[in-house]
Design a protein around this nucleic acid. Sequence first.
DNA 1: AATTTCCGTGAAATCGATTGCACAATCGAT
DNA 2: ATCGATTGTGCAATCGATTTCACGGAAATT
Lengths: 339, 339
Amino acid sequence: MKDVARLANVSVSTVSRVINSSIPVDEATRLRVEKAIQQVNFKPNLIARSLRMKSTNLIGVVVPELQHETFTSFIKFAEESAEARGYNLVIGSTNTNPETEERFIENLIRRNIDGIIFSRVSDHSRVLKLIDRTKIPIVIIDRSLAREDIPAVVLDNYGAGAMAAGHLLSLGHLSFACITGPLDISINRERLAGFRDTIMTGGGRLDERYIFEGNFKYDSGGRGADFLLDTGADFTAVWAQNDYMAIGAMNRLAARGFSIPGDISIMGLDNIEHSWMIMPALTTMAQPFRQMCESAVDLIVKASRKETTDASRIVLGPELVIRETTAPAGAGSRKLVGH
Amino acid sequence: MKDVARLANVSVSTVSRVINSSIPVDEATRLRVEKAIQQVNFKPNLIARSLRMKSTNLIGVVVPELQHETFTSFIKFAEESAEARGYNLVIGSTNTNPETEERFIENLIRRNIDGIIFSRVSDHSRVLKLIDRTKIPIVIIDRSLAREDIPAVVLDNYGAGAMAAGHLLSLGHLSFACITGPLDISINRERLAGFRDTIMTGGGRLDERYIFEGNFKYDSGGRGADFLLDTGADFTAVWAQNDYMAIGAMNRLAARGFSIPGDISIMGLDNIEHSWMIMPALTTMAQPFRQMCESAVDLIVKASRKETTDASRIVLGPELVIRETTAPAGAGSRKLVGH
DNA sequence: AATTTCCGTGAAATCGATTGCACAATCGAT
DNA sequence: ATCGATTGTGCAATCGATTTCACGGAAATT
């Protein structure tokens, strides 16, 4: 900057003012400075600026892992939104390990990061205290926390369950099964409640024995299918609370001789890439990940500019994606197995 | 830091020396300082340090997109390695858009980033000049460039092609087809060369008409299968140069009545998650992504510490993953269609 | 003509660390 | 007792920006 100043025959203060247009500068000198900036191809050093301004234009994104498409989607869309607003992303995956979480957050704080988008915080970790102390804007995404004072962007989980039930009921299904995610996580209980309630009021039945608790991974879908089948196979529709488990269940059902969707209809949730790469293509519900991330980034940008301070909670609805794994009840040749 | 200094009754210089153990400090005062640091829970501000040291402990990772699993793997493994060395990751996806690429790199440079891991640079972009000018360590990953003076970590692409051919030859296949990636990218030509050469020396044949140029996406696998089938279906084994295309081709082949692997064996490359979630599970080759990223991070860390200055090129081999889509030739009931 | 207002500019402080240099204290050797 | 070497510490400069404050001169007001 000194070079530019010398070249334009002004002080560094003036150069700074031209760059940031913070305070009006005489037209003539402004042009002179701009020309000098061009000449030496000067780009302000962001570190020095950050030190002075206490703002880095960096957003941290913390996810439990980078394997599941859910989380890579978060990163993808967050990156998109951040880039559009002139922010860069610092990412970290924590394996839900409180220690890693803490170390990472600590680092971000020391880097004076502008905000953090956090997915699947371990509730019991001391991380939240860490954040409270430093007053860094934080947005929880995908999973709400017990604490209502922290901004969050989440799916309407109850609505998702209701939507799954609604679609299947409309196809004439009456006997249901469900493969859930871990039920100690509240969003999964909400999803189940929406599913169950809608089935009830729609005149269908969801026997408690036909609820299998999985872990969101492919394998547990297969285990779920086995469990349900062995319990007594008198259901015609299965909803798995994410696509990985839905695909796992579907493959197992097919392997055990059931036709999809002839004998059994199956639905997932997430609309991951795999869901349309398999045969038959999976009927599922898309989570509005792009919008979620956009909102999250927005919240942080605004908060870091102190434009708002209210802890808002944004709830977004899923979108039904009908493909080939759901069909009218009784389309296949299978007889319901009694017990 | 001033608070700590006052509390411990020393100067800030001494506090700094305790923190960095750069210069010996008297045992007694060191303990006093450490206690003071504990008391005020002091953590050095990394921005100030970066400004002074001209080193940020940040590594940039630039990928063309965050959709394909290949690139999310890069990020995942790079994050792992970086975290282990005390670095954080700044990521950006460019859509291979030279403008976005430039903007992003520019940003990283202005942030005084320690190094950049770059995947699939657009060769014609002005980015490399940009980087040359600032002397930031850079490592190309996954795809080599014409310029030999830039460090790179790449797959042994010729070897991968050879490995695919070898496996299929060992199963007795003699008539081959190949679905390639874009052939203007050198790595794909190398893969094809390895495939072709090994088939030749192994006594098989790869008719030029049975080479279809895809674009690495799912759809082009299906198109490739159609093309090959319509050209004349006298091949018993297909290698697609990545898993997405392999799965696309496999689904189309199945849809057109061929049994996999009975009639036609099929192989991919990458070992993406989808590859074992489909039925039948895909035989493929795993790229050593973890090792690639580890090497890349290592190169950057070393370069940024000026421990080495030589532009090394690291070549790593793939690993064969045999699953269910390859079988001995002639296992199925299909008769080869002559023409 | 004197006073006030306004605008543009520069000098210097600031952000929070690291480090070169100078100096004081300790020690051992002559 | 004197000297040189060694060790530990503090002062002040530095990194590269932003911003407060003060000041000079032009314009506006009386």
